[in-house]
Amino acid sequence: MSILKPAAALVLAVLALAVMQRTAPGYADITRPITVSGKLGERLTGRQFDIRVESVRLGRDLVYEAYGRRQTLTTNGVWALLEVSAEATTESVSIIAASWRAPNGARYVASKRPSTYPGMLSLQRLEPGLPKRGFILFELPRDQLAGGTVLIARTEFAPLDTEFAFHMDGIDTLPLQGELVLTADD
């Protein structure tokens, strides 16, 4: 009886320490971005800017004009073109980090292939009081569209900063265009 009590206390203490060790968050978890979630068409507000994904178009080829030349970009998968409006809230800011979190867990970083097209959101500077429209483009496998989530942040590594998560529900039901044409009006 006299040994049982301290032994039980020791086992409990060891168990508690093991649980604490297993569940202690790492540095990356402690400083991870703060997620603000929403869906297509919803305006979300973060620390430095607010943003809305207004529409999505899908296509096999991407066609645009830059410096007087028509450019065509092909893909083995699908182009997903997001039209976005955004506005800085407190200070001029650029948004350079966007990725597609696929249902299989993979992350697809926004395509930089049409790097000369000035309408891309990553090439624009957001100013307080001046809402802007721009595009974010993803090159994705067809089977990773449904259930995908678009993650948008100011930078690739944004500790304790806002990361927007837009759930792309119903995107797989959108029509797949042969040519996705970006025009100056876009």
């Binding site: 407190t90 001029s92 100013e127 307080p128």
Partner: peptide, 8 residues
């Protein structure tokens, strides 16, 4: 209001 515009 504390809004800041940086050089452009």
């Amino acid at each position: 209001e504390g809004r800041r515009w940086l050089p452009s």
